[in-house]
C-alpha cells in the first residue's frame, strides 16, 4: 500500500478545494466517504492517491430529508440509513430495496450513497491491476477474455458494467444529482451524470477530479406509483448484480399510465429501456404484455462470447419484475 496524506474537509467546497490544491501541487487526490471502495483499491494498489480527502468530517450530509413530497438525500447517508428511512421505504421502495441488496451489513453501515454511485467498476481485469482503460491504459481485456459478467449494451471500447445498485434506481426515479466543485455547485439529471466509454473510457461519470457528488434530489411521485428493485445475484449477499432492474410504474386500476425501467449489470451506465416504457404506457399489464416487454428489452443486445446467457436472463427479469409489480395487491 502506498503512503498517503489524509485531509479532513469541513464542507464539500473545502473538499473540492483540497483536491484542486493537491492537483496544483502535482499530487493526486481521491475523495473518501465510507472508504469501503477506495481503501480496498488503495490496499490492492489499484488506486494510489497522494492525498485522501476525507468527507466524513463534512456535517449535515448524512441524512434523508423530505423535500415537498420528494427527498433530498445527503451524499454521505449510509446505505443502511437509506434502506431504513421511513419515507424511503414507504414511497420509494426501489431505493430501499436497492440499498439493502448491496454487499454486506458491515459495508452498508459505512458505505455512502454518493460512494455507491461513484464506486469504480468491479470488472476483474480492473480490480486485478490490468492496465485497462479504467486504469488509464488503452485497452479493454474483456472482449477476448473472460467476459461472463460484462456489458451486453453500450459496450466499447470498454465493456465494464456499472456496479451501482442505487444508480438504476435514481435514474428510474428521475433524480437530480448535486455536484460541488471548487468554484461552486451544479446540478444534473441522474441520467446525464453517467457517461458511456465511447465518450470517456477512463471514467464512469462526468465528475472532474476536483468535483464531488454531494446530494441526490428525488422528485415527488404520483400517489398511485409503485416501485421495485430486482437484483439477480450469483450468491445471496456480498456481490454485485449479474443483472438487475429498477422499475417504476404508475398504475391506474391495472392500466399502466407511465413506466420507467432501468437495468443494472448490463451496460457501462444504468441502462434505461425507453422502448419498453413506451410499450407499457397506456396498456393493461397482462402476462402476454410482460412477456413482450421482456422481448423488447433485449432488442439490440450485443453479447460477448461468454455472456450470451445475460440476454435470456434480462428478458426473464424484465418480464417477471413488470408483471409482479403491476399485479401486486
Amino acid at each position: 500500500m502506498k503512503t498517503f496524506v489524509n485531509a479532513n474537509a469541513r464542507d464539500f467546497k473545502e473538499a473540492a478545494t483540497l483536491a484542486r490544491q493537491a492537483a496544483r501541487d502535482g499530487k493526486s487526490a481521491a475523495f473518501s466517504g465510507g472508504g469501503s471502495d477506495l481503501l480496498g483499491l488503495i490496499k490492492e494498489g489499484i488506486a494510489a492517491p497522494d492525498v485522501v480527502v476525507n468527507l466524513r468530517s463534512v456535517r449535515n450530509a448524512q441524512r434523508v430529508q423530505d423535500a415537498s413530497g420528494g427527498l433530498t438525500i445527503g451524499g454521505l447517508t449510509t446505505l443502511d440509513d437509506l434502506s431504513r428511512d421511513g419515507a424511503v421505504r414507504q414511497r420509494f421502495a426501489v431505493l430501499a430495496e436497492a440499498a439493502e441488496t448491496v454487499a454486506t451489513p458491515q459495508i452498508r453501515n459505512v458505505a455512502t450513497v454518493a460512494g455507491n454511485v461513484c464506486q469504480r467498476p468491479w470488472c476483474w481485469y480492473y480490480r486485478n491491476g490490468f492496465p485497462c482503460f479504467k486504469a488509464g491504459g488503452r485497452t479493454c481485456f474483456s472482449p477476448t477474455g473472460e467476459n461472463q459478467f460484462h456489458a451486453i449494451f453500450g459496450g466499447g471500447p470498454s465493456y465494464i458494467v456499472h456496479p451501482s445498485d442505487l444508480a438504476p434506481a435514481f435514474v428510474a426515479l428521475d433524480a437530480t444529482f448535486r455536484i460541488a466543485g471548487p468554484s461552486g455547485e451544479r446540478t444534473l439529471p441522474a441520467a446525464d451524470f453517467f457517461v458511456l466509454p465511447r465518450e470517456n473510457a477512463a471514467r464512469e461519470n462526468v465528475l472532474a477530479n476536483d468535483e464531488v457528488l454531494t446530494a441526490v434530489q428525488v422528485p415527488a411521485i404520483a400517489r398511485d406509483t409503485r416501485t421495485t428493485y430486482n437484483k439477480i445475484m450469483d450468491r445471496e449477499a456480498w456481490t454485485h448484480a449479474v443483472v438487475s432492474a429498477a422499475v417504476v410504474l404508475q398504475m391506474d386500476q391495472g392500466v399502466c399510465r407511465a413506466a420507467r425501467i432501468v437495468l443494472g449489470g448490463v451496460a457501462p451506465i444504468p441502462w434505461r429501456l425507453p422502448q419498453v416504457e413506451r410499450l407499457l404506457a397506456g396498456q393493461r399489464i397482462t402476462a402476454e404484455l410482460a412477456a413482450r416487454a421482456g422481448e423488447v428489452a433485449v432488442e439490440g443486445a450485443m453479447p460477448l462470447p461468454k455472456n450470451r446467457y445475460k440476454v435470456p436472463l434480462v428478458q426473464s427479469l424484465v418480464k417477471r419484475t413488470v408483471l409482479d409489480l403491476a399485479t401486486r395487491t
Binding site: W124, D234, R235, E236, A237, W238, T239
Partner: peptide, 11 residues
C-alpha cells in the same frame, strides 16, 4: 471470497 462466489450463511 468475492470473486470465487463462495457461499455465505444466507445461501
Amino acid at each position: 471470497y468475492y470473486g470465487a462466489r463462495h457461499m455465505t450463511h444466507l445461501g
